[in-house]
Each structure stands twice: as structure tokens, then as C-alpha cells.
């Protein structure tokens, strides 16, 4: 039975990966993922700085961009696009029934689709992290780069960013896949999650831990404090809590994803085809 399930999961992944990677409608996900690389490359080409202070600034800037733009916006919306499309997009295209008419358990369909979304998102977003890394740091002197990467913390920083990006895809991906299965209009849960994750800065310490972003921030190698705005009352509410150990954060995100995917799989058994209402 496992062999059959594996073959079926692979078949689903082959079908869905082609759709996710090469669909014209998914072009914006590539743009979103690679968007930070453009100014970084321009910075490398146009503003050639020398010296350790600029290098240090670039390290801080990368950490800030990763934490406040890449995780919160690029990967968040990218996962909305990729994972909600897996089920809800098929409903809109009126083609989900082809999966449901095959001799495949609904749970296997869901796992196959989740894995294909995961492979696509991890490839796109982790790939983009590498491109950004190269774009931002390539103009610095080779000796400085070598000492940062091989004798300093550079390599472990890069690995941490890659792990954080992959974990973001797992965490947000599972949540948005479930939203696509459970909700006719998954924009509603997406907007609620966006608001919740955006409000992370002002949430009480306990509630901060019920957001994906808190655990992702814990994996990031450099902690950047939440930025304060112009509103003085709101600024009083902004504070940071100590990050969790990276291993605990990864484990928690995996547990969250596992729980959400299992729940979505159970609910997928009850999916009915009703394209008229899409």
C-alpha cells in the first residue's frame, strides 16, 4: 500500500509542480521572491563601498530585510498564491474533480499537493535567499567575504536564513493549504492571519508565541528589534520578547504544520464538488 501511495504522491507532485513552476499566473510569485535582489544588485553595482563598517551595515540590512520584508510579506503572500491555488485554484478552474475521480485517497491527494507546493515554494524562496545573499555581498573584497563566510559566522547565518525561509514555507504553506480546503473564500483567513502576524509587535508575550512569525524570528541569526512608528501611543505597546532556541522553533513549526495538514486531510474527506458557487 505504501508503494502505491508513494507512486500516487509522486504522480500528483509531477502534475502540480509543472503547474506551479511554469504557470503564467504564478509569475508574480517569482517577482515577489526576487524583488529584494534587484536593489541589492543595484547597490553592489552602483554603491561600491569599502571597509568593515559597510560590510557590517549590509549584514544588518540583510537581517532587517529578511525579517521584515521577506518573511512577513514575500513568503507570506507567495505561500498564499502557491498553496491556496492547490485546491481552491482547481475549484476555480473546475478541474478538481479529476483528482477526486482517481483511485487515490483524499488524504493522499492532500499530502501530494502539499509536498508539491512545498517543493515549489522552498525552491523559489530559498533560491531567492541565495541570489540576494550573493547580490548584496558580492561587491565586498574577497578577503573580507572569506573571513566572514569561513572563519566568521557567515556560513551559519546563511544556513539559518535558508532554514528560516524553508520553515516559513512549511508553516505558512500548511496554514494556507488548509484555508484553501476549508474556506470558500480563503482570503478571509489570509487577511486575519496577515493582521495577526502584523500585530505581532504589540501583542502580549504569550500571544506572540501563537504566531508563525515569532518562531521564524527565533530561527533568524540576527535579532532586529521591532521598528517604532510615528504614533506614540502605539509605540508604547511595541516590545520584543526573547526568541526561543532555534531547534525548539523548528520543532514547533513542524508540529504546527503536521497538525494543520492532518486536520486538513480529515476535512478533505468531506470535500464536495460544487463549482457553481465558485
Amino acid at each position: 500500500m505504501m508503494t502505491l501511495w508513494n507512486r500516487q504522491i509522486l504522480a500528483i507532485m509531477r502534475i502540480d509542480l509543472a503547474k506551479t513552476f511554469f504557470a503564467k499566473r504564478g509569475l508574480w510569485i517569482y517577482l515577489l521572491a526576487l524583488s529584494p535582489a534587484v536593489p541589492m544588485l543595484l547597490h553592489s553595482l552602483l554603491d561600491r563601498h569599502e571597509g568593515n563598517s559597510d560590510f557590517g551595515q549590509d549584514v544588518q540590512i540583510f537581517a532587517g530585510i529578511f525579517q521584515f520584508f521577506y518573511l512577513r510579506i514575500a513568503i507570506f503572500f507567495g505561500c498564499v498564491g502557491i498553496f491556496m491555488n492547490l485546491f481552491r485554484g482547481e475549484m476555480v478552474d473546475k478541474s478538481l474533480h479529476y483528482y477526486l475521480l482517481a483511485p487515490v485517497r483524499r488524504e493522499v491527494i492532500l499530502v501530494g499537493k502539499f509536498l508539491s507546493g512545498l517543493v515549489a515554494s522552498v525552491t523559489i524562496f530559498c533560491g531567492s535567499v541565495l541570489v540576494q545573499w550573493c547580490s548584496l555581498f558580492c561587491h565586498h573584497p574577497a578577503s573580507l567575504l572569506n573571513s566572514y563566510m569561513f572563519t566568521g559566522p557567515g556560513a551559519s547565518h546563511l544556513v539559518s536564513y535558508l532554514v528560516a525561509a524553508a520553515c516559513a514555507c512549511v508553516g505558512y504553506g500548511s496554514v494556507f493549504l488548509a484555508a484553501g480546503v476549508l474556506f470558500r473564500n480563503p482570503l478571509i483567513p489570509a487577511a486575519v492571519i496577515l493582521l495577526w502576524e502584523s500585530a505581532d509587535g504589540i501583542l502580549p508575550a504569550l500571544l506572540k508565541k501563537i504566531s508563525v512569525i515569532y518562531w521564524l524570528k527565533s530561527i533568524c541569526p540576527i535579532s532586529i528589534p521591532s521598528p517604532k512608528g510615528n504614533n506614540s501611543i502605539l509605540n508604547l505597546l511595541i516590545f520584543d520578547v526573547d526568541p526561543a532556541p532555534a531547534r525548539v522553533a523548528i520543532l514547533n513549526l513542524m508540529l504546527l504544520a503536521g497538525f494543520v495538514v492532518v486536520w486538513a486531510a480529515i476535512r478533505a474527506r468531506r470535500i464536495e464538488i460544487g463549482y457553481g458557487s465558485e
Binding site: 502505491l4 503547474k19 511554469f22 478552474d93 473546475k94 478541474s95 475521480l101 483511485p103 487515490v104 463549482y275
Partner: peptide, 30 residues
Amino acid sequence: PEHFFRTLGYATQYDGFPRGLTGWEFVRNY
């Protein structure tokens, strides 16, 4: 479904198809 859909084939009335596929790919993928 694992046994049921080996026994049953259904051509629905829905006119939707997976995007971008040729006729051959559509049958093969299924």
C-alpha cells in the same frame, strides 16, 4: 476510493480542464 474508482469511470458535464495540458497529457496524467 482506491477500489471504487478502479471500477468506475465518470465523464462529467463540467467543461473545465487542468490548464495548459494537451489531450494526451490530460489522459496520461489521470
